[in-house]
Design a protein around this nucleic acid. Structure first.
Lengths: 323, 323
DNA sequence: TTGTAGGCGTTATCAG
DNA sequence: CTGATAACGCCTACAA
């Protein structure tokens, strides 16, 4: 390993001088500057960031905690975070918490030990004191925390309301909503968007519920179609649930979108893999990640956030499951 | 920040003693052991891993470079790596190279500076000298490098051959293969598996080509179905291509699997989101990641790899696109 | 303009 | 059994 010491010896100067040319501060004469630079290149020296971290208590790293990278929502998010972070000179450490408080705590500890400069959270399974005790800038993504740190979310409520209204505008008489798990902020917000839309128009509606997983969605769909007949429009709490309901409908010979229209939520890539393609409320996932990361970096650099809730618009993409 | 020094003061001992109780080596009397332990708990002290890294030139971190986490193949892989690594006390740093040599080089530098203990590569855009100069244990995944470090791959050739044979066994008369990009090892291997299967049985065949992306797959499918009529079986180089061809076939009113049977490759999760569900050659993605990680950790811990090529079996999952 | 030396938090060696 | 102390690689007062 080539250290600053070796460079110094080779160049016939002290380590301080080498440090100065690396960090471009302090005075260095033209001549030594050149010599040191050439030695650095020759020896292919890179400063050891561990040693730097130890001194600066800083790491140029951002910690990102997500529940599960295997969930289609998160790769794009992670990608956005990494892209922006890189552009600003930060590296990203990605961690899957599985929503397990203990795992999350482990990663939080890791982050602290490793002097990460900031953290992006998409889950919060600890008491808020834990986060504030970390004494590290934090931004929440897709969750609304308390006001101890800023959140970036998409406008789940409005997206859901608009989707429901679209369904009704397209002539749906017998509408249903398959909601996601209770007590998950986005899932609840979408539910309320649906409710408000149907109540404003005083139409009857049916509510179902499913986990955000295909298998459960299919199971619920089978039950649902057994019990409820004549449903001609469903707004699902996310695309995975929508895919499950679509599959079961198709399997039963229900014509989509002629007899049944379906709208999902998220704008997941697989919506286009399906035929008919899924109409969905698209969240600007990449943008959310980008906004959160830029915000975090600003905070790291000492700026105060302008607000504590950044809402990004969700927009409807009409495809093949509506007419 | 609470350091070993503070703990030492608080407990009325020297840092050396505290260090001993943390690392459980050297002699510590019952009494001081207890006192130190209680102070550690009281102050909620955790050793600073940066400082440890500096001393040990080791980080308990594994670097993972993948082309793009947004590609459905990689989340599961990443997940496996993280799971196994965690279980063995290693953390994972995940990086997207986009197959860009410069980006990859940046990450490699990062890894070196940060003393990562080992690296898992799923891309190789540098000359092999670059990797060996790193002087860090490396395992390749889903690529066959030269013999400078071990690789874990799935048996692309055999999986492809078996899929092709299955298609023929199911009565396909007019078979086609849509191959992936040239000069990508897995894509080439699958192509050869197909070729050998059809030539053994001396049947005619058609070859198409597409990128591993839905949009291009659909474009190629449109052209393909315009030109080639009467094709009743297609083996696609991966699931994304298969999804594109399936979509276009369905759009054109071709009945699947009655008139056309399709088999993909990968066992991507979205194969089940589609209706009819995609028959596919499933790679044990999670297992590949797990094997690679265990192997890497063994090497890190000083064992020699038993072989330089670990081939994992690819197995056919029959679902709705074959009959 | 350059060099010396102390410190960042930890570990391990070597006396005591 | 315990305590100084040097070292890991780097940075920055402070001196020269």
């Amino acid at each position: 390993m080539v250290t600053i010491k070796k460079v110094a010896e080779e160049a016939g100067v002290s380590v301080a001088t080498v440090s100065r040319v690396i960090n471009q501060n302090g005075y260095v004469s033209e001549g030594t500057l050149k010599k040191v630079k050439s030695v650095i290149k020759e020896l292919n020296y890179t400063p050891n960031s561990i040693a730097r971290s130890l001194y600066h208590k800083t790491s140029n790293m951002i910690g990102l905690i997500i529940p599960d990278i295997t969930n289609p929502f998160f790769p794009e998010l992670a990608r956005a975070v990494e892209d922006i972070a890189m552009k600003c000179g930060y590296k990203v450490v990605l961690c899957n918490s599985d929503k397990d408080p203990e795992k999350e705590m482990n990663y939080l500890d890791l982050f602290k030990e490793r002097y990460v400069d900031g953290i992006i959270l998409t889950t919060q399974s600890q008491e808020s004191k834990v986060y504030s005790d970390l004494n590290v800038p934090i931004v929440a993504l897709d969750r609304i925390g308390d006001a101890s740190f800023p959140s970036v979310v998409s406008n789940n409520y409005h997206g859901a309301k608009k989707a429901t209204e679209l369904l009704m505008a397209k002539g749906v008489k017998n509408i249903a909503h398959i909601r996601g798990p209770k007590n998950i902020a986005p899932s609840d917000a979408r539910y309320h968007g649906f409710i408000d839309a149907v109540e404003e128009q005083r139409v009857n509606y049916t509510i179902g519920e499913a986990e955000f997983q295909l298998e459960d969605a299919e199971r619920q769909a089978e039950q649902f179609f057994d019990i409820h007949t004549g449903i001609d429009g469903i707004f699902c709490s996310n695309d995975t649930i929508a895919a499950g309901f679509l599959k079961v409908a198709l399997k039963r010979g229900i014509k989509v979108p002629e007899e049944l229209q379906i709208i999902g939520f998220d704008g997941s890539f697989f919506g286009e893999f399906i035929y008919p393609e899924l109409t969905t409320v698209s969240q600007p996932i990449y943008d959310m990640g980008a906004v959160a990361t830029r915000l975090l970096i600003k905070i790291i650099q000492g700026e105060k956030p302008e607000k504590y809730l950044y809402e990004m618009p969700a927009t409807i993409i009409e495809r093949g499951t509506t007419r």
